[in-house]
Amino acid sequence: MRIIPAIDLLDGQAVRLQKGDYAKKTIYNHNPFEEARKFKTARFDHIHVVDLNGAKSGSFENLPIIKTIISELGLSVQTGGGVRSRKDIDLLLNAGLSGVICSSMAVKKTDEWMKAIEDYPEQMILGLDLKDGKMAYGGWLKTSDEPIEEFINPMIDAGLKTVLSTDIARDGMLSGPNVEMYADLQKRFPQLNWIASGGVSNLQDLVELQNHNLYGVVVGKAYYEGNIRLDEMRELNRSGM
């Protein structure tokens, strides 16, 4: 299983939010580049970066920081936050991003999203945010009653390979990941690479997710709060690759 350290960017700082609430933020580092350097030093080669400003404004205000991380540290970066059109996708890929995460765009501009999957199947990552078992979008404020199968199967046919799924109720809460949900998704869609996001609180959580053969897991707050050390994350990452 791939362990993917996370950096959430807000106003040029590395922060974490609770359940996506901008009013409930914790600043962990005023220099996010230094956080990325720690991951590089610990021999991680791929990280997860979210542009929280972009998620609100649709403008990738923190892209210069991400580009510096890529160019100066040589890290592979997957990113999300504010991706709303094919133009946005092309901008990010041209900036050197290895993966682009889209959620609302997949709902609101389905044709553009499906074409992007066809053109860049290795780089496109569906952001599947779940709230009480329902798909959520629009900054997690709206939910859909559409069955997940009806939503995802056409994307699989178009070439989709990777899905990053967040249980909104557990995001940033250190309450433990929704292992049952991820195990169910892995069983229902075994052809997809599933990346778990939200709720990881300790090393045992990572071991449990690995036991369900998930492709990857994003680790953020548990690391920043000192619940999991980088060397522990790296050891599990190495043993599971």
Rank of each mutant, 00 (worst) to 15 (best):
M1A: 10
I4V: 12
P5Y: 10
D8A: 06
L10A: 05
A14H: 04
V15I: 13
V15Q: 05
V15S: 03
R16I: 04
L17D: 01
Q18P: 05
K19R: 07
K19N: 00
D21Y: 02
A23P: 00
K25I: 15
K25A: 06
A36R: 00
K38Q: 03
K40W: 10
D45Y: 03
D45W: 08
V50K: 01
L52A: 04
N53G: 13
N53H: 13
A55G: 10
A55D: 01
K56R: 13
S57K: 15
G58W: 10
S59M: 02
S59L: 04
S59P: 00
E61R: 03
N62R: 08
N62A: 06
L63Q: 03
I70M: 05
E72Q: 15
E72C: 11
V77G: 09
V77D: 01
G81K: 12
G81V: 13
G81D: 00
R84G: 05
R86Q: 01
K87Y: 03
K87D: 04
K87H: 08
L92A: 08
L93A: 12
N94M: 05
A95R: 00
S98W: 08
G99T: 02
I101D: 14
I101V: 15
C102S: 10
M105K: 03
V107W: 14
K109P: 00
W113T: 01
K115C: 03
I117E: 09
D119K: 02
Y120S: 02
Y120Q: 04
E122N: 05
E122S: 09
Q123V: 11
M124E: 14
I125G: 08
I125Y: 14
L126I: 11
G127E: 12
G127Q: 11
D129F: 14
L130F: 04
D132C: 11
G133N: 15
G133A: 15
G133I: 14
K134H: 15
Y137Q: 03
Y137I: 06
G138W: 07
W140M: 08
L141S: 14
E146T: 15
I148W: 12
I152P: 09
N153S: 15
N153I: 09
N153H: 09
A158Q: 04
G159M: 04
G159P: 09
T162M: 07
L164S: 04
S165N: 08
A169T: 10
R170L: 13
D171T: 01
G172N: 01
G176Y: 03
P177D: 12
E180C: 11
E180F: 03
E180V: 11
M181K: 09
A183G: 06
A183N: 14
F189D: 13
W194E: 07
A196K: 13
A196R: 12
G199R: 04
G199S: 02
G199Q: 13
N202Y: 11
N202D: 12
Q204P: 08
Q204D: 14
L206C: 13
L214W: 09
V218W: 01
A222T: 00
E225Q: 01
L230K: 06
D231A: 11
M233G: 14
E235N: 05
L236P: 00
L236H: 06
N237Q: 06
S239V: 03
S239T: 01
G240P: 06
M241N: 09
